[in-house]
Design a protein around this nucleic acid. Structure first.
Lengths: 199, 199
DNA sequence: CTTCTTATGTTGACACTGACAACATAAAGG
DNA sequence: CCTTTATGTTGTCAGTGTCAACATAAGAAG
């Protein structure tokens, strides 16, 4: 549903999303300006409004796409028959961290509180999908010994929170710098601390 | 160094910081406007500039103060003789999560990537202090069995990342909502998952 | 092909913002 | 008292997000 291949400019919607991510990567979310975005695509300042009603809308769309990508990447390990249930959950956590490191700008927008505030329905749906994939994996791993003594309602925030937080730590230049994370740790080691792959 | 008790308005700097936190709590960081801030304190639009050179400066100051407060709260458990080393680290993690829940607006600004980008020296110093307190506690706990098989450079990001991420999850309305964290888990249970208090 | 409709892009405007410079006044210190 | 410094004000500027009115291209219908 994303390819309205034909319109005056080529495919402005897609171009806007890509250019926005590029800008954010270089200058941060706050520096993103709809007018500059339009200008750098050679289009008038109000053209983006045909595709995104507001700046928040554009950011929401970026995050929705990002969650879809992330869900896909993580889901690839959800049913791997070569892995135990614990190893699957471990792989999912590591994959999520790796994805964040490879897509810093998108991840940065995902964790931006101001975007959360204006989330639209599409974003909430994408997040719900992501959540469902993990909930299943956690439940399965739990029955194989993943903190089976801890209450279930704590397990979910722990797994997602740890994964998100570690990714945030590694991608935030201030934290990574000031906290003296000189040598970037192996993501495998980090995932092992969240979910030990052995029983 | 924070109490320049006498000036025209009373203590504008402090008033600005407090009013800013209040506004952020209600409307988010993006909605914060220097001019509105000035207006709501009954002061001309350029008055804040005598105390904060830019909007980023004000946010930086909020975060610096916040880290100082957080460090103090966490540090209270660093040498508690009634606790084992593992229990201390556990208490520090739980305290940090509790602090974030009790100071949502400040925590939100702390984890805002745009603030990180413009961090000044005072902020970096505050973060370094925070980091030092934790590094010591982690090293001690490790020698008492806290993941002593994992590489040290992974342990640090794991502990801070998990704590920050869980706090973020619980304080972000979008994540907490869409991830179906219906019943807020006990922070104690969460801290136990990060650092088991028993050997 | 012609005509109608819709999708997309443009122009112009508005209120608002952060930032700066020039000026004004209060406070403090000699 | 006078001078200096800290603090606040007024005026201005370029830039922003958003909206409404207009223009044009694309596609569908006849």
């Amino acid at each position: 549903m994303n390819d309205k291949a034909a319109y005056h400019h080529g495919n402005l919607r897609k171009a806007l999303l890509e250019e926005a991510v590029t800008t954010i990567e270089a200058q941060g979310v706050e520096a993103l300006s709809m007018r500059q975005l339009a200008a750098s695509l050679g289009v008038s300042h109000a053209a983006p409004r045909r595709h995104f009603e507001s700046k928040g809308d554009l950011l929401s769309a970026i995050v929705t796409d990002a969650y879809t990508e992330l869900t896909e990447a993580v889901f690839a390990h959800a049913d791997d028959p070569a892995l135990s249930r614990l190893e699957r959950l471990n792989a999912m956590s590591r994959t999520a961290i790796d994805w964040a490191l490879a897509n810093r700008a998108k991840f940065q927008v995902m964790t931006n509180p101001d975007v959360s505030r204006f989330a639209d329905e599409a974003l909430k749906a994408a997040l719900a999908d992501f959540s469902a994939v993990l909930a299943k994996a956690i439940t399965e791993a739990r029955s194989d010994g993943f903190h089976d003594d801890a209450p279930m309602e704590a397990l979910f925030p722990f797994l997602i929170g740890s994964t998100v937080g570690i990714a945030k730590l590694l991608t935030d230049p201030l934290m990574a710098g000031a906290l003296n994370i000189a040598k970037e740790p192996q993501t495998g080691d980090l995932a092992d601390l969240i979910v030990s792959p052995e029983e």
